[in-house]
Design a protein around this nucleic acid. Structure first.
Length: 153
DNA sequence: CGTGGTACGGTTA
DNA sequence: TAACCGTACCACG
């Protein structure tokens, strides 16, 4: 199944199967007709911090890239780690982590927007502003949640 | 095959 | 500051 949903100036295209395995997520300029899993639409609307039961195809990758992706999905909502931190966990170099992020077939689900450079944001394909928007969205949601907790909800 | 290029970071001069 | 290097992988010749 496949479809797309609007997010800012872009559409988020997603293709997945009946076992909730996602084989592709991509940022596109044009709308694409079709359904989108509700965990994704809720996430992008800031109504959920959780994308389960969706699973990325990358989770079954073997080799260094698989190790990298499995570390990246562990980064908590709203937090970031540097390329080097991930590299050290896996036992490789920061540059390899950057390349793995570039080749990530399922951004958002493997939250590569939470992986930043030591001295700045790092990169993002196709547009760095998407990375900023995703991080801002997560910061906003956390902020609202804190506010709700303070009021005893 | 070799080579050059990456969404990085550390080491040197 | 700038030039180089490691690391994993791929596109290209």
């Amino acid at each position: 199944m496949e479809g797309a949903i609007k997010f800012g100036l872009w559409y988020v295209y997603i293709r997945w199967d009946d076992l909730q395995v996602v084989s592709r997520i991509r940022f596109v300029k044009q709308a694409i007709d079709g359904p989108v899993p509700s965990p994704l639409s809720r996430f992008l609307a800031g109504k959920s911090m959780d994308l389960s039961p969706l699973v990325s195809v990358h989770m079954q990758d073997c080799g260094v890239y698989g190790d990298i992706y499995r570390q990246v999905v562990k980064i908590p909502y709203g937090e970031t780690k540097t390329y080097k931190e991930i590299a050290d966990l896996v036992g490789t170099g920061a540059r390899v982590v950057g390349l793995a992020m570039k080749r990530n077939l399922t951004p958002i689900l493997v939250p590569c927007h939470r992986v930043v450079a030591m001295n700045g944001l790092g990169g993002y394909t196709p547009d760095i502003s998407i990375k900023q928007e995703l991080l801002e969205l997560e910061a906003q949601v956390l902020k609202k949640m804190k506010h709700a907790n303070k009021n005893g909800i």
